[in-house]
Computed example of a mutant assay.
Amino acid sequence: MRTYPPRTRSRRAVLTGAASVALAVAAGLALPQPAGAAETAPVGFGAGTTGGGSTGAVTVSTLAAFKSAVTGGSAKVVKVSGLIALSGQVDVGSNTTIVGVGPSSGFTGGGLRLKKVSNVVVRNLNISKAVKTDAITVQASTKVWIDHNTLSSDRDHGKDYYDGLVDITHGSDYVTVSWNTFKDHWKGSLVGHSDNNASEDTGHLHVTYHHNYFSDVNSRIPSLRFGTGHFYNNYVVGAETAVHSRMGAQMLVENNVFRNTQVAVTTDHDSDVDGYANMTGNDLGGAATEVSRVGTFTKPPYSYSAEPASSVAASVTSGAGAGRL
């Protein structure tokens, strides 16, 4: 019988360093930028995604204005000011950049759907408590960058009261998920929705996750079927099962940190066919691994720089989430 480390829920105290910031401002010194703040383009499989590019931005603060602003395939940049309540999901058109204004703008009660679109950027949003739906759904879409968002619900309801935080399905392709905070949720990020969808998904679902902070997310960090996933420099705290490769998926799990986690990487749970995983440079923190098949995906087809696991927790906790651009 496999023995797992005990799982306890924890909350981290965050020190703001306000006194140091005040002294720096008084002295006329430049303030340090959070890690990842300088990124103006995606790294990974989503490279080349530009969204609305340099198109002049429109700022919206109501649901009606937001729905109107993100409709259609023309190039557009939409700034969301304030927290907008919604139910269900709002469909987003192609060639769109959506960015929150400040640290606390976004949506509550529902989320965004990218369906049969291309070239979409979603940044700096707070999306919380999307009831019976995903915070962000990417469906049959290509070239997507999901960056510096804070995505959450709560663990007070059953695991099906909310759905996923970021779900990528129906043959979607070339997606980067970077510098986000995922927290207080059951099912984090599902890539490939069904064991029976090989005909649509095989050869697609190329997804990069880097520098994300998963805090008290139970599982699917991520769960990947059929596709190819690169999971590097992420910080996972408080998971039951984190990375899950299934149905022949290929996963490269590189230089991540796991804490208070039962199973860091698995290839043999809950599917008809096991997946594949390669692991290198990770700090497991005592978590178990259940890798039945080692895969062939060892070198991504793009340029990137993976920092050592020893610096990941500091980089991610200082740089991930909304308000860190």
Rank of each mutant, 00 (worst) to 15 (best):
G48P: 15
A64S: 14
G51Q: 06
T71Y: 02
A69M: 08
F66K: 00
A47F: 04
T50D: 12
T55F: 10
L63C: 07
S74I: 08
T62V: 10
A57C: 09
T49F: 10
P42R: 01
L63S: 03
V43C: 07
V43R: 01
T55H: 07
L63G: 02
A57H: 05
S61D: 13
G53P: 11
G73P: 09
S68Y: 09
A65Y: 02
V58D: 00
A64Q: 06
T55Y: 03
A37Y: 07
K67Y: 05
F45L: 01
G44T: 03
F45D: 00
G46F: 07
A47K: 10
G44W: 00
T71V: 08
A64K: 01
G48L: 11
L63Y: 08
A47S: 15
V43S: 10
V58N: 00
K67N: 14
G53A: 11
V58C: 00
A65C: 04
S61R: 00
T62N: 08
G52H: 06
T40W: 04
T55G: 04
A38T: 15
S54P: 02
G53D: 14
G46D: 01
A47M: 10
V60S: 01
S54G: 12
T49P: 08
G51W: 10
G53F: 14
T62S: 15
A69N: 01
P42N: 10
K67E: 15
V43T: 15
A38K: 14
G72L: 09
A38Y: 08
A47R: 04
T40R: 13
T62Y: 08
T59V: 12
G52N: 03
